[in-house]
Write a protein that binds this DNA or RNA. Structure first.
Lengths: 205, 205
DNA sequence: CTTCCTCTACTGGTTTTCTGGTATATTTAC
DNA sequence: GTAAATATACCAGAAAACCAGTAGAGGAAG
């Protein structure tokens, strides 16, 4: 099995926790997604523990690529993110499970064994989050497109519709449509509320 | 030394990394703040590696309490948060340093040694963040009156000038003046930027 | 290949915000 | 008790945002 995580401390911890398991041998650990993809080209990996926040590419994207390159490799997401959308995105991209980093050693080892058997598993806290749809996140993050995100950030910086139209070489009518969609997706009345909520949710820095 | 972190994996990793250091003996590891405070009552701890996000209380608060209870105990923050405000809050509360969790083993060990000597240390990435301040964070918080704060919050909630005038029993021309003063005090072009910056500065929740 | 999504763009309007000024009670602070 | 800051209020016009509806081009996914 392999580990992909940009925190050396976490890698050490995992190695240590799994050292006691004779059937789980760690064949490689990586701090970037590309490093692992290179490794995967000429090595067989049964299961990979995959962090979602990586320096080069998102774990969500990486998961998809891994599954395309090596469908026999099971992917277990290991992350601090407990947003439902993250979990579902990972599963959608072929992950075999999702563990929070605060999982106990037992949870971790069990999940790896289950993943190796082809089962889909979650750490306990994730199960809770998945079963309680709206308590953990009273407001779901809306699905927002790349262009919309771009516009959203510019709005937060104080750019006006006309200014954005000019700098993005678009009609200002187009920008207005994006604006409208943002307001509608976030279910808010005006930009003030839009920026307020987007910032709270960490979508805008 | 002691470790407070809600991730068992991280605790394992740290134990492992520090096992090779004969002068650093780990006398306790804890997953909650209160557990550690109890331990601290009848144990001497030279240095504690402290996570900021804990299940019970914030590491920032905990740091303050530790320093009050045991001033001879050095606190090293260990976190994923790379916001300048976090770093400064920790230092303000008496931390001896701040490490990102993606720090290398060497950085970690060096920092612990330096902390033990009473020095203030940071991991490399934190040093960068601290030396290259973001433009928005340079901005000092403008002096804002009670009424203005009230209006600011209502704006962030999506209230319009007319709506606020009605709910506060004021002329809408008055609200417009407050609005204008807010824009002027924050030196911004429009509400979008106003809310963006006010939220970043924690003025609006 | 067809359906769905995203990005693009338009018409024609209403509402709200923003920008100049100006001005007067009422607190607050020294 | 006086000066400064704060909260209140007005006028008028320009600029920007918001609303409702429509629609084609292009890409992704099934």
């Amino acid at each position: 099995m392999a580990i992909v995580d940009d925190h050396p401390i976490v890698i050490e911890g995992l190695k240590n926790l799994l050292a006691a398991q004779p059937d789980l041998e760690i064949t490689g650990s990586f701090t970037t997604g590309t490093e692992f993809l290179v490794f995967l080209k000429d090595h067989v990996v049964d299961v990979v523990l995959l962090d979602i926040t990586l320096p080069d590419i998102s774990g969500i994207e990486l998961c998809k690529e891994i599954r395309m390159m090596a469908p026999q490799t099971f992917v277990l997401a290991l992350s601090n993110h407990n947003e439902r959308s993250m979990i579902f995105q990972m599963l959608h991209n072929g992950a075999s499970g999702y563990l929070l980093k605060n999982a106990s050693a037992n949870e971790l080892i069990n999940s790896i064994h289950e993943a190796l058997e082809g089962k889909v598993t979650f750490s306990n806290s994730i199960r809770e989050i998945m079963s309680m749809p709206h308590l953990t996140e009273f407001r779901e993050k809306p699905a927002i497109t790349k262009r919309e995100l771009e516009i959203l950030k510019l709005i937060a910086q104080g750019e006006t519709t006309a200014g954005m139209a000019e700098s993005l070489f678009l009609s200002k009518l187009t920008i207005e449509t994006h604006r409208r969609n943002l307001l509608q997706k976030f279910a808010v009345k005006n930009v003030a509320q839009l920026i307020s909520i987007a910032t709270q949710q960490g979508i805008v820095p």
